[in-house]
């Protein structure tokens, strides 16, 4: 027990916490993609595709960064 507690450091705890939050952010970005699509369905405007592209771009950036952080840190 003491070994486990001794191996726990602040960086480890914060790192795990941040990884979890990054995964959550990626999931939320996926929800945003769906949300942008539904919003565009409710109101179809010429620049609606720009918002969908923005949402997809955010999702892919989140995904890449999350994978990178989870694997490296």
């Amino acid at each position: 027990m003491d070994d486990i507690l001794g191996s726990l450091s602040l960086s480890l705890i914060v790192g795990l916490f941040v990884k979890g939050l990054l995964v959550l952010t990626t999931l939320l970005s996926l929800v945003t993609v769906r949300q942008a699509s539904l919003m565009d369905k409710v109101l179809n405007v010429p620049i609606g595709n720009w918002f969908k592209t923005l949402a997809w771009g955010f999702f892919f950036v989140s995904l890449i960064l999350t994978i990178g952080i989870v694997l490296i840190v």
């Binding site: 790192g15 990054l22 952010t25 955010f58 960064l65 840190v73």
Partner: peptide, 30 residues
């Protein structure tokens, strides 16, 4: 915290900020 964890924290911070901006932009527009 170690520099790598600090980097992870900064990445999360700016992703969260981008999420906040996109949400507000979408809600205003639609």
């Amino acid at each position: 915290v170690t520099p790598m964890v600090g980097l992870a924290l900064a990445v999360f911070w700016y992703l969260g900020l981008a999420f906040f901006v996109i949400q507000n932009l979408l809600l205003w527009f639609y």
